[in-house]
């Protein structure tokens, strides 16, 4: 990439940083340049976020319809997957999967609910009754 081809598109990097890129200068030698962003990347990132929002909305609908427990919603909201949530809670993946069933969730002890609630940064009350 030549120095004058370095993209300078507005991106989520704005007010955060500019990226160092290795580019060729007029003499054909490498030097570093700073880029404000590249539209190709911003759109990919943007799409990824739209997908996250879609999944979170899906999870919310499922909880409201009684098809899943709030664990699923907060897992999506915090961009987690089972291994990550297992890491934070100390529960096994299969346990978390069970906790996602409303029937099992209803019977969870306050102690277990608190473990989840702390990680999801909500109160046990709101978590239990899905007040968001």
């Amino acid at each position: 990439m030549k120095k004058n081809e370095l993209p300078q598109d507005e991106s989520p990097l704005k007010d955060f940083t500019r990226e160092v890129c290795y580019v060729k200068n007029e003499d054909g030698k490498y030097e570093t340049g700073l880029s404000e962003g590249w539209d190709v990347k911003s759109v990919a990132l943007n799409n990824a976020w739209e997908e996250i929002e879609r999944r979170t909305q899906d999870a919310k609908d499922k909880v409201l319809k009684g098809e899943a427990s709030p664990v699923l919603y907060y897992l999506e909201l915090h961009l987690m997957d089972l291994p990550v949530l297992a890491g934070y809670t100390g529960f096994r993946r299969w346990q978390i999967k069970r906790h996602m069933k409303p029937s099992v969730f209803k019977k969870l002890s306050d102690k277990k609910l608190k473990i989840y609630a702390d990680i999801f940064e909500v109160s046990v009350e709101n978590f239990k009754h899905f007040k968001i």
């Binding site: 990097l13 990226e19 590249w38 190709v40 990347k41 759109v43 990919a44 990132l45 799409n47 990824a48 997908e51």
Partner: peptide
């Protein structure tokens, strides 16, 4: 499939 491609680009180019 488009999301997957976006994922490749992000892994390729992102900070």
């Amino acid at each position: 499939a488009g999301l997957f491609l976006g994922q490749i680009v992000r892994m390729q180019e992102e900070i």
